[in-house]
Amino acid sequence: MLTFEEKLAIIESYPMLERNDVSLGRVNFKFKESVIDKENVVYHLHPNGNGYVFAELIDDDYDIDTKGMVNIRDFSEKALRKVIDQSIASLSEQEPFEETWINRDKETLLLVNDFDSWNIYAGNLLEATYATYNGAVDYLKQEGFRPSR
């Protein structure tokens, strides 16, 4: 496991991230060029080595919490750099985010990120709106849909 100082050195090597010291010795790093309302890439990096990286929009199979964060406590340098790179890329996307979801009856729904909301459309009709990608995905899965890839 990397120490706090090692993680800090890795994260500070990203010139596009802005450091923000918060309470209890924790540190956040923001990506001010984010194209969505989220700016925190690294959240509450703690002197004990615990911390989080925003991973909600990343396609990899990270174990993310309800805030869209992955815990980086046990990440290696390579894994930490990878998730930070992916996080920054996900916050830099210029193209509108859209995913098609399909059920066993071949019905499709479209998941779209519209102005920091996650909207689900059935054709031109708005089916549902969620504050997070994970919330929308949970709904789609409960309704028997899966990503169409």
Rank of each mutant, 00 (worst) to 15 (best):
Phe29Tyr: 15
Glu33Gln: 15
Phe29Trp: 06
Glu39Lys: 14
Leu24Tyr: 15
Met16Leu: 11
Glu12Cys: 04
Ala55Thr: 11
Tyr133Asn: 08
Lys82Phe: 02
Val53Met: 07
Asn124Thr: 06
Ala89Met: 11
Val42Cys: 10
Ser87Met: 12
Ile36Asp: 09
Leu126Cys: 15
Glu143Trp: 09
Val35Trp: 02
Phe29Glu: 05
Tyr14Arg: 04
Tyr130Trp: 11
Lys82Pro: 08
Phe31Pro: 01
Ser148Asn: 14
Phe4Lys: 02
Val53Asp: 01
Lys67Gly: 09
Lys67Glu: 07
Asn113Glu: 14
Lys32Thr: 08
Glu77Trp: 08
Arg19Ser: 02
Asp59Trp: 13
Gln94Leu: 14
Glu39Ala: 11
Thr100Phe: 10
Leu110Thr: 15
Ala122Phe: 10
Tyr14Ile: 10
Thr129Cys: 13
Thr100Ser: 01
Gly135Tyr: 04
Ser76Thr: 15
Val112Pro: 00
Lys141Asp: 12
Ala131Met: 09
Asp21Cys: 09
Trp101Cys: 07
Leu91Arg: 12
Gly49Met: 04
Ile58Gln: 03
Glu6Thr: 10
Lys30Glu: 10
Phe4His: 03
Glu99Tyr: 02
Phe4Asp: 03
Val112Ser: 11
Arg146Leu: 13
Asp105Met: 07
Leu110Lys: 14
Ser117Gly: 07
Lys30Gly: 11
Ala128Ile: 04
Leu126Trp: 06
Glu107Phe: 05
Asp65Met: 11
Leu111Gly: 10
Asp114Cys: 04
Phe29Asn: 03
Lys67Val: 00
Leu109Ile: 05
Val83Ala: 07
Thr3Leu: 09
Arg73Val: 04
Glu107Lys: 06
Phe29Pro: 01
Thr100Pro: 00
Asn48Tyr: 00
Glu33Ile: 06
Val35Phe: 09
Leu2Trp: 03
Ala9Leu: 13
Lys67Met: 10
Tyr121Pro: 01
Ile10Pro: 05
Glu33Tyr: 12
Met16Cys: 14
Asp60Ser: 11
Thr3Glu: 05
Phe97Arg: 12
Lys30Pro: 03
Asn40Asp: 11
Arg26Pro: 01
His46Trp: 06
Leu109Glu: 01
Ala89Tyr: 00
Thr129Asp: 02
Pro147Val: 11
Ala128Cys: 04
Leu24Val: 09
Gly68Asp: 08
Asp74Val: 04
Leu17Ser: 07
Leu80Tyr: 05
Tyr14Asn: 06
Lys67His: 12
Ile72Glu: 06
Leu110His: 02
Glu95Val: 14
Thr66Lys: 13
Lys141Pro: 06
Asn119Pro: 02
Asp61Thr: 05
Asp21Trp: 06
Pro15Lys: 04
Leu57Trp: 08
Tyr130Cys: 09
Thr100Val: 15
Met69Tyr: 15
Val22Tyr: 03
Asp37Asn: 13
Leu80Thr: 08
Ala136Phe: 04
Thr66Ala: 13
Glu98Asn: 07
Phe29Cys: 00
Ile84Gln: 03
Asn20Gln: 14
Ser76Tyr: 13
Thr108Leu: 05
Glu98Thr: 09
Ile10Lys: 01
Ala9Met: 12
Glu12Ile: 05
Arg73Ile: 05
Arg26Ser: 07
Tyr62His: 09
Lys106Ser: 08
Ile36His: 03
Leu110Glu: 10
Arg73Phe: 15
Val70Lys: 02
Glu143Arg: 14
Thr108Lys: 12
Glu77Asn: 11
Leu110Asn: 09
Val137Ala: 13
Gly123Ala: 01
Arg149Leu: 08
Asn119Phe: 00
Ile36Val: 15
Phe29Ala: 01
